[in-house]
Amino acid sequence: MTHKQWPLWEIFIRGQHGLNHRHVGSLHAPDAEMAINNARDVYTRRKEGVSIWVVPSSEITASSPSEKGPLFDPAESKVYRHPTFFDIPEEVGKM
């Protein structure tokens, strides 16, 4: 089997507030559909996005709005992702 790298995709996510899709980074995936799934796992771990576009060189593919439920709700309960979840006493100082 010849060694072949998964292509690189640029990921654009629209935040919750109805703004434009914004470039958030890139990742590797064998095709557009998997790039979207991977983007969900990589870039919305904290529920930052409601819509994803993935772009290989020239083509743009967007996740469909109907996937909104299962794709993005789950991270809501992961409050330990946020630093304020850990109470650090004031005496310890900034952390």
């Binding site: 630093p83 310890v92 952390m95």
Partner: peptide, 12 residues
Amino acid sequence: KEESFHQRQGYS
């Protein structure tokens, strides 16, 4: 931004 919780979880 994401790592801000890492040090705190360790200290916790």
